[in-house]
Amino acid sequence: MAAEPEKLSAAQRSKVRKLATPKELAPDEEGGELNIVPFLDIIMNVLMFVLATVTTTFTATIDTLPPKAGGHGPKPTDAPTLGLTILIVPEGFSMKAKGGNVGPGCDSIGGGLAVAKAGADYDYPAVTRCVAKLKGSNDAFADETNVTISANPNIPYSTVIGTIDAVRKTEDGKELFPDVNFGLAK
């Protein structure tokens, strides 16, 4: 039979408790360190505030050159050039290419608007299809990336940006006319 473990007396237990209790250091005994916890609490609150209130916006820029009067386009060369110019009017888009006015449907040279408004809104997808058709009409136009955009004086900036986006590339990502110049309507 195993011997019963020896038990401490009450005085010994008291002394063990007293000696085993970790000493609480007085403020002047804490190794001279600054208590930065309140400061860090403030920082934490400021961080949360900043993250909660700031709305991050992602921006991009469209590069362009100073506007040119007249909209003459590139100098004529022996090779055929498209020389695409788009005029934004309140009723839609008028286009000039290959030295003439692009008619409705973008199939031929003729009078009228190339792309009319679809209801109250400008028909940007139709503009994309139209300029893609014009660019694809001759292999010599494949390397042309310049377009001159002009507008009536009261046309808002957002419509101009929408048009720049519409002629930039096709829906399947094929590059059309990413280089934009602004023209001055006379």
């Binding site: 009536n152 009261n154 808002p156 900036y157 602004f182």
Partner: peptide
């Protein structure tokens, strides 16, 4: 520029 800026004003600034 503001999205409603008229084209004329934009061109004046760019010019």
């Amino acid at each position: 520029a503001d999205k409603d800026t008229p084209y004329r004003l934009l061109v004046e600034v760019l010019f």
